[in-house]
Computed example of a mutant assay.
Amino acid sequence: MRFKASIQNVSTFTRLTASLNSLGRLAWVKLTEEQVCFTIIPDQGTQVWAVLAIDSIFETITVQSAADNVINLEVPLALLHRALKSALHATSAQIRLTKKDNVPVLALTIVMAASANTHRAFDAPFDDFGGGSRETMVTHEIAVRVLSPEAVAHLHEPATREPDVYINLPSLMQLKSISDRFTKLALADTKPSTASTASRTRLEVAANMHGCLKLSIKSDAMSMSSTWTGLTNPELDPGHISGGAESIAGLPSTRMKQLGSADGRSDEGWSSVRIDGLDWGKVMSVGRLGGRVIACFCHEHALILYVYLSNNNGDDESVLTYYISSYSA
C-alpha cells in the first residue's frame, strides 16, 4: 500500500479541514488517483460527503493498493488541520502514508525558507544558500487507521426524496453572521429551565422558486426573521434527468414555481426546514472556501447543500455535499 502526494494548494486544504473539523472529530478519507473524498458521519448533526478533484489540492499523487488502488483511512481532523496550518507559508509540502513503530501515520513534510537570523527556531536546518538564506524541513506525523473495503462498504450517502425547491444561496459568511446573531439572542432571552439548548436554537430556513430565502427564529420572548429576494433558482438540465423535459414537468419544484411571489410576501410556495442554529453556524463555516452553493429543500424533511469549488482549470469538479435533517414542528 502506497500513498504519496505533493500539495499545491495548502490554503484550500487548510480551510477545508477547519470546516470539516467543526462538524466531526474523525473523517473517512477515500484516496484514489482521480479524486480524494472526505466523509463526516457524526452520531448527531450534519453529514458531509466531499468529493474533490485531485488538482484542487494536490499537484502530483500516487495511490497504490491491492484493493483496486483505493486507500481508505480514518483521519483525526484536528491533528491534520494543525499540521497543515504550519505549512501555510511553506515553499513546498508533501504528504505520504507510512508507518512508525508499526502504526500507520500520515507524514506531512514541509520545507520552509528562513533567514540566517531565524533558522535556529526550526528543528532541522539544511542547505545554506548565498545571501544568508537557509531552508528548514519539518515533518508532522499523524496517526491514522487504515480501513478495509469491507469496513466502509455499508457507508452510503443518505437517501432523500426529490427536493421541492432549489435555490442559490447568498454569501455564506453573511448567512452565518445573521444566523449566529439570531441564535445568541434566542439563548440569551430564554431561561435555561424552560427548554433544551437544541430547541432554543432551532432556526427555520425556507425558500421558494421565485428567488426568495427566509431565515427566522422564535422563542418565548421574541420572533425575528430576515428575507432575501432577487436570488436565483437554478434550472434543471433535461439531459441529466431520467425522462428529460417530460419528467421535469412533473417534479415538485416545477409545481412550486406556480406558487408564491418574487417579493417574498406570499405565504404560498415556501418549502421549509427546522435546523439547529449551533450546527448551522458550523456548516456555514464552509463559506471560507468560496464557491457557489445550491440549497435543496425537501419540505419538513431535509436540507441538502451542494458547495461547488472551482479548480485550477476553472471547472466545477469538486463538490461538498451537506445533509441536514429537519426537526419536527
Rank of each mutant, 00 (worst) to 15 (best):
R288H: 04
Y323E: 03
L251K: 05
Y327V: 07
D101L: 05
V307W: 08
N208Y: 13
R134D: 01
E246Y: 12
S266I: 05
Q64Y: 15
S216H: 13
E59Y: 13
Q174I: 05
D164V: 04
L175D: 07
R96Y: 04
V111Y: 02
A206M: 09
S226E: 11
S272K: 11
S148K: 14
L52T: 04
L16Q: 03
A295H: 09
H119E: 05
R120S: 10
V70A: 09
G24V: 05
L236G: 03
I294V: 14
K99H: 02
K191M: 03
D237S: 09
C212V: 07
I71Y: 06
N9K: 05
C37G: 00
S325K: 10
T201L: 11
L169H: 12
D276K: 06
T17I: 01
D55E: 13
S65W: 13
A27E: 03
P149N: 10
T32K: 13
P149L: 10
V205H: 04
E157F: 04
D279V: 12
L108E: 02
A295D: 05
R134C: 01
A78S: 07
I41K: 10
E268H: 08
A66L: 14
S328G: 12
S326R: 09
D237L: 00
A302H: 10
H154R: 14
K218G: 00
R25F: 06
V319M: 14
T39P: 09
F129D: 06
T136M: 06
S6Q: 06
V10T: 10
L79K: 03
K191Q: 04
E157K: 14
N312M: 13
T60W: 05
M209S: 10
A221T: 09
